[in-house]
């Protein structure tokens, strides 16, 4: 405890202030209700995102601006808070993954290429000796496996899969995932909804890959929040903040891009129901 306090004290102090600057539910509501992209930028002007989207007029420009925000977070907080190297490396790997692929792989061939990276992420967490990082890696591995499973079922695939198609390191075993994959989609959703990880989630949401992506992010955020809620100092609060910030960026990007592209508000609201709840 004392060693963690000394090692992570500075980063925890920074994170405690930054937590107060995370967007609230009302910010998300206002972003969703905003009539135009300019209105959204006005809402974001008094938040840490203010100024980052000046001159942006296309989805590509928005993505580039959001990448800059993410890199700034990485350089500023993770790079200048004296955090141990495995933690910065872990998030750098995730950043690399996110840059290479926005979203989850749509087919098994793409997914196979991602597995090597997930292996590295899990191995980095294991080698770090940091319980919070290991917990996050296990959660991400579970979520990644479930996303692949859900996508496969949404495409109507059935039958047996290669066990190597699932990332190791999660709490849900490959055998369980393979057994789930052999079941019909509705039964898979029902069984997933009964998992401790997804308890309380509507099975219909689980079967919709786009909605499940949001649910999965919310699950990761809530789990990390729960485990670091009573921790005053240590890696937990820092890692949880970075996770929350990254999820916030995904939601902000989607809301901005959605309004820019003229996506219906109802569709966006449905997609982010878990966040607005």
């Amino acid at each position: 405890m004392v060693r963690d306090s000394l090692r992570y004290g500075h980063a925890v102090g920074r994170v405690r202030v930054r937590e107060t600057r995370l967007l609230s539910r009302s910010h998300f509501e206002r972003l969703l209700d905003a009539a135009t992209f300019s209105d959204q930028l006005r809402i974001l002007s008094d938040t840490p995102y203010g100024g980052h989207f000046d001159g942006v007029s296309s989805i590509e420009g928005l993505q580039a601006a959001m990448d800059r925000v993410r890199l700034q977070l990485h350089d500023d907080l993770l790079g200048r808070s004296g955090l141990p190297e495995p933690i910065t490396r872990f998030f750098a790997l995730l950043d690399g993954y996110q840059e290479a692929r926005n979203g989850t792989a749509e087919n098994p061939a793409e997914w196979a290429a991602d597995i090597a990276l997930y292996k590295e992420i899990v191995a980095t967490a294991e080698a770090s000796g940091c319980a919070s990082l290991r917990e996050l890696a296990a959660l991400l591995a579970d979520v990644a496996n479930l996303k692949v499973l859900v996508r496969s079922k949404a495409r109507g695939e059935a039958g047996s899969w290669d066990p190597e198609m699932f990332v190791a390191g999660g709490a849900i075993t490959r055998e369980r995932l393979l057994a789930l994959h052999r079941l019909p989609a509705e039964e898979v959703a029902a069984q997933l909804a009964a998992l401790d990880l997804l308890k309380g989630i509507d099975p219909q949401q689980i079967l919709d890959p786009a909605r499940f992506d949001v649910v999965a992010d919310v699950v990761v955020a809530s789990r990390m929040r729960e485990s670091s809620a009573l921790v005053a100092a240590g890696a937990g609060p820092v890692i949880t903040y970075v996770v929350l910030q990254r999820i916030e960026m995904i939601v902000v990007r989607t809301l901005l891009a959605g309004v820019m592209a003229g996506v219906s508000r109802d569709l966006l609201r449905t997609r982010f129901r878990e966040i607005f709840r």
Binding site: V2, L6, G9, V12, G13, R16
Partner: peptide, 18 residues
């Protein structure tokens, strides 16, 4: 010394942000 070092780390983190 250890106590001050621990709390000062967090305090400097807060002050560096605000």
């Amino acid at each position: 010394s250890i106590g001050i070092a621990a709390v000062s780390g967090a305090a400097t983190g807060v002050v560096s942000e605000d």
